[in-house]
Design a protein around this nucleic acid. Sequence first.
DNA 1: CGGAACTTTGAACCGTGTCAAGGAACGTGG
DNA 2: CCACGTTCCTTGACACGGTTCAAAGTTCCG
Lengths: 238, 238
Amino acid sequence: MKPSLANAARDAATIRLGRLAPLVDDDRAMLETAASEARRIQARRELMAMGDPVRWPTLLLSGWACRYRDLPNGGRQILDLVLPGELIGFGRQSEPKALSAVMALTEVSVCPLPDAQPGSGLAQAYEESASLSEAALLRQITRLGRLNALQRLADFLLELHERLLASDSAELGSFPFPLTQEALADVLGLTSVHVNRTLQVMRREGVLVLQGGVARLPNFPKLRALVTAIPDALSREW
Amino acid sequence: MKPSLANAARDAATIRLGRLAPLVDDDRAMLETAASEARRIQARRELMAMGDPVRWPTLLLSGWACRYRDLPNGGRQILDLVLPGELIGFGRQSEPKALSAVMALTEVSVCPLPDAQPGSGLAQAYEESASLSEAALLRQITRLGRLNALQRLADFLLELHERLLASDSAELGSFPFPLTQEALADVLGLTSVHVNRTLQVMRREGVLVLQGGVARLPNFPKLRALVTAIPDALSREW
DNA sequence: CGGAACTTTGAACCGTGTCAAGGAACGTGG
DNA sequence: CCACGTTCCTTGACACGGTTCAAAGTTCCG
């Protein structure tokens, strides 16, 4: 048995990667070794600055981080979240510069991403992970381009739930939710004021309960329906 | 000398890839061979459907295409364009399903992407290309999340110009512009009506001339200023 | 010459942003 | 354990950017 913290930390990554591709003992051993080099980083600390020469690819063992860009006018756009068991900066090799900055949203624990032998289960899991990561970017584009505030929020909550389930970081219908409304606004391309109002609608509609840093989604069918709903159909259909 | 069409077609790709990484004669020969298998595809034809098992990675020799998603309500979001010399579906290998659909916006000419030996200049050029492609997605997210209509359009025109220059498909300050206002709206997350009005503002401001399917950008500094304009502009690039 | 696709225009409407202020929660030091 | 500052959440009034709907004008092409 390992110390409980390192253990919990390793688990999210091992669980997630192990589901993306079959891992053999050797793969698991590498993850375990890497996890023993874990560093803890405080919330709001930058893990990587935009344009930085890319350090090493990193594995997020626990906590939440985000990729983001600062705007000339002081605003910020969060491009994507990084959740437990997900990869940071694994991409095209010799990538000279980071395409975005990365910041810890909560306290996080990270370790260097273990090198994977080409063809190994681990290597395959990395590829799958990178593919999911691109899928998340595409979903984010669609969300920002074509959904309204309520739809964006609903879609985002559903995505969070799915992604957290992948590492057993969520239970069915509920998960830790450390995001401030301002962070949420920066993800969804809204203002924090409007996020606040939209959250209230969701609570009133009974599709979201937020308390004590935990989100619960008590009505999945309705939440899913919100994403595709024609605005205004809300009252009529439910 | 090759027939002029195939020649022009090969050129955009060879020029672009040759600038992303140094190519040796062998690399160029592979590109030339692949180009000889070019297929022509009409405008509005789908090159790949979302969720399709990924066919082969493809090289766009000439014309414009787009990656897009259809929405349940009938709308559409264009995720990214594919311009001459750019790659389609080159990514994580064994990717089981296409993450987006791809459609020809003009008549296009495509060929199978030649296999590159690991370590070759060609392989390196592909990696660079994939990296630029991700950068474009991140830029698109920022554009949709944090810029208003005028800023989105200005930023998009500047991006187009840069990307087309990479394959000598644009001259300095002017390039072919085959997009309908509806396509533009689907890229920028707006309605075509509002795109129309925004285009008029840009013309009135003297930063854009559209005629005969060609766009001219007569005032770069002003166009760039538009992107960051409005509230107290800090400088810096993002 | 006729039709389809695309662009342009106007008026009304509404989703989201802005500004400003007050309230709740939380951590820290006394 | 309380006082205090900081961060985060909530609310209201109002302004504006962008959408919607509808119709007319234009370009393109067979």
